[in-house]
């Protein structure tokens, strides 16, 4: 656990020093969301109808945008092979990096999401569920994304590649995340949606660190 905290502390410090990553992710999220009214027209009821889906799709894309950096810089400067050689289990190191990614990407998106919901004219009934669903869903995005980020180490055009690998795997989170908000807006129970999202989170928490650590070992071999 100490090792996990050590990685988390250092990576958070790196992320904050290196500057504007989180800001950029949130800006991307806001700009992407803003594109939809231009695409489908500014009618309030249409926007309200698609708001939950638009917010989730934009969040997915924004979370994916910063994935490449999860391991890339450490891979390039040799840190990753030293982490692999440290006495600490690599899975724990990966988990620390996933936590950093979530804190610098998922969390700011959750903060920004209600703002976009207001701008898309979403009914306030859905706000609570939107935030809860994002709290459960975005860690899953970071966990699955870490696998993709580890697989592309050393590949050509890694950034584009990671989106092709990861986005299809994000579809269940999108379906249940947007579904939960929609159900809440229609006054239907949301429990089932959230429970399934929780199950997906637990499953990825159990499997993703091993898959990503395996991919990292391959990359530094």
């Amino acid at each position: 656990m100490n090792a996990f905290m050590a990685i988390l502390r250092r990576d958070m410090r790196l992320a904050l020093r290196q500057g504007a990553d989180s800001v950029m992710v949130v800006a991307f999220f806001i700009v992407t969301t803003t594109l939809f009214p231009f695409g489908v027209g500014p009618e309030a009821n249409i926007l309200a109808r698609i708001a939950s889906g638009v917010i989730w799709v934009s969040a997915l894309l924004a979370a994916m945008l910063s994935l490449e950096r999860v391991f890339q810089t450490d891979y390039e400067d040799g840190t990753l092979e030293l982490l692999t050689l440290s006495p600490v289990p690599l899975e724990l190191v990966v988990l620390g990096k996933v936590a950093t990614h979530w804190l610098t990407t998922g969390l700011p998106l959750i903060v920004a999401a209600p703002l976009m919901a207001v701008m898309l004219n979403m009914s306030t009934d859905g706000f609570g569920v939107l935030i809860v669903a994002m709290l459960i869903g975005t860690p899953t995005l970071s966990l699955i994304g870490a696998i993709g980020a580890a697989l592309i180490l050393g590949a050509r055009r890694g950034g584009v590649l990671v989106s092709l690998l990861v986005l299809p795997l994000y579809i269940p989170v999108l379906i249940f995340g947007a579904g939960a908000v929609e159900a809440a807006l229609l006054g239907m129970p949301v429990q089932a949606h959230l429970q399934i999202m929780g199950a997906i989170l637990l499953l990825s928490l159990a499997l993703a660190p091993f898959a990503a650590a395996h991919a990292v070992r391959q990359a530094v071999e």
Binding site: L151, I152, G158, P168, I171, P172, H214
Partner: peptide
């Protein structure tokens, strides 16, 4: 795309194998 993105074909195949396993876990969920 992943398998062909590496200069070393063996490395590509290994990464692909890992991805196929991740994918096959995901197929029922999807």
């Amino acid at each position: 795309a992943l398998v062909n993105a590496f200069d070393d074909p063996e490395r590509g195949s290994k990464a692909g194998s890992a991805l196929a396993l991740v994918g096959v876990v995901n197929v029922p969920i999807v």
